[in-house]
Write a protein that binds this DNA or RNA. Structure first.
Length: 459
RNA sequence: UCCCCAGUAGCUCAGUUGGCAGAGCAAUUGGCUGUUAACCAAUGGGUCCGCGGUUCAAGUCCGUGCUGGGGAGCCA
């Protein structure tokens, strides 16, 4: 008999008669002559209830089943007389696939996130983490679908890069030199290294994406990104996934339109296709989540020049730990005030002072600000960071000189401004931060399967 | 990297002015004819994070290290 997934079973309108399910025992409740088994196979949040009676040939084995054990159950799918579920299975036979011993760490009660993080290999077996990672999977699909529907091309940008000057943060060095060789040479002789020069894990696929946007039109990258920053916060990990669209012939306004449409589409997809899993988060993780999701879907995102933001902050009457003044980079508390208290919805902050932004952002006509945009979201902070790119060769080179960047290393990047340059824009969206936003999960380590953080690379 | 907090049974936690190590859940055993984190009863379970110190006496006070959490910076 062929196995049916529990998700498919629970969606049935009428019973097909005999079915076979395979999964893991979440809990067992015994009566004198029979047991209730709750079986979960990961296909959905819900369990299927199994009634295993003492008429089973191996009932003694069934009684020894513990939480976490793996079983195969064949039996008739019948309407449940009990409350709480539509269907249940009257077991005709039960295969004990494996018994989880008594030291199985997961119990049928609630565990703390901290404890579950220490058993990250087992936590997807819980309701909350199972739901989180089903949603993560579905959102990855939704991203590809969104872009395919819009005619974008998917670019797999390289993970190993040749320059250490992308400027987005500390990088992880990639080398094939052995420690013994380095000791012998008394230094890291990159000439002897695999690529013949220093190489690192990527901090962004943006520069690659720009080359392809100026070739294929609209492209996006979606993949892992690495930062060797010693960041110890609930919003940073050393390895995370970033979505980076890059669009030719697109200005800053178009960039914002695109970001807003993306967020609204993804949230809508989650609510439509992950309803049960999403409801868990609205109910047990963050009661204010449904309201936030509604805001994300229904409200137009605010758009605000940096200069106006400074003015709002200065006039707010709020006492900030870090004083507000034109020219400063906004602190977390400032961003939170704007998104959570002032606008109470996502807000694009645009046109930052040139001094606090990277070389590739397009200089505005005022010569003081650049066409940058950050999307600030309640509770999350910066979800998107992007800009219209500087497409004018002379302006770009001037900026690089200003910031003492080695233009020779960027010869290929500058080529794109020599040959057929055109206005273009793009941004990066932190995939994990997006997942935090739509689930209400407050620690980024809990939306990525096996988090990498300073001093921690178990699993 | 900086600031703050925490570490006691498998898990979640209590432990008073320094004076015998505790509870709930889980586990184990038994009971129960339909349960819903089932219920009832019994039983077992401890490097009080490590190291050093103060003291007649330290889970408790002091120093130090490690681990975890919250916040800040960096940013996605």
């Amino acid at each position: 008999m062929e196995r049916t997934k529990i998700k498919a079973l629970l969606e049935l309108g009428t019973s097909p008669g005999q079915v076979l399910v395979k999964g893991w025992v979440r809990t067992k409740r015994d009566s004198k002559d029979f047991s209730f088994l709750e079986i979960n196979d990961g296909s959905c949040l819900a369990n299927i209830q199994v009634i295993a009676g003492n008429d089973l040939a191996n009932y003694e084995d069934v009684q020894r089943l513990t939480t976490g054990s793996a079983v195969g159950i064949t039996g008739e799918l019948v309407e449940s007389p009990g409350k709480g579920q539509k269907w249940e299975i009257q077991a005709g036979s039960a295969e004990v696939i494996s018994i989880a011993p008594e030291d199985y760490p997961l119990q049928k009660k609630r565990h703390s996130d901290e404890f579950l993080r220490s058993i990250a290999h087992l936590r997807p077996r819980t309701n909350k983490y199972g739901a989180a990672f089903r949603i993560r999977s579905e959102m990855a699909y939704a991203i590809h679908k969104f872009y395919r529907d819009k005619g974008f091309r998917y670019l797999t940008s390289p993970l190993i890069t040749g320059s250490d000057c992308e400027g987005a943060g500390e990088m992880f060095r990639v080398t094939s030199l052995s420690p013994a060789q380095v000791a012998e040479d008394g230094k890291m002789d990159f000439g002897k290294d695999f690529f013949g020069q220093e190489s690192n894990l990527t901090v962004s696929g943006q520069l690659s994406a720009e080359m392809f946007a100026l070739s294929l039109g609209d492209v996006y990258t979606f993949g892992p990104t690495f930062r060797a920053e010693n960041s110890n916060t609930s919003r940073h990990v050393a390895e995370f996934w970033m979505l980076e669209p890059e669009m030719a012939f697109c200005d800053l306004a178009g960039n914002m339109d695109h970001g807003e449409e993306l967020v609204k589409t993804l949230v809508g997809h989650a609510m439509e296709h992950c309803e049960a899993d999403m409801n868990l988060f609205g109910k047990f993780v963050d009661k204010s989540l449904p309201a936030l999701l509604k805001t994300l879907m229904d409200e137009e995102f605010a758009r605000l020049p940096y200069t106006d933001a400074i003015e709002i902050l200065e006039k707010s009457g709020k006492k900030f730990e870090f004083p507000v003044a034109y020219g400063i980079d906004l602190q977390s508390e400032h961003e939170r005030f704007l998104a959570e208290e002032y606008f109470k919805k996502p807000v694009f902050l645009i046109n930052y002072p040139r001094e606090i932004k990277p070389f590739y952002m397009r200089m505005n006509d005022d010569e003081k600000t650049v066409a940058a945009m950050d999307l600030l979201v309640p509770r999350i902070g910066e979800l998107i960071g992007g800009s219209q790119r500087e497409e004018r060769l002379d302006r770009l080179e001037a900026r690089m000189d200003e910031m003492n960047l080695p233009k020779d290393d960027y010869w290929w990047y500058l080529d794109s401004r020599r040959y057929g340059t055109a206005p273009h824009s793009g941004f990066g969206l932190g995939f994990e931060r997006f997942l935090m936003m739509i689930t209400g999960i407050t620690n980024i380590r809990d939306v990525i399967p096996f988090p990498r953080t300073p001093g921690s690379i178990d699993f």
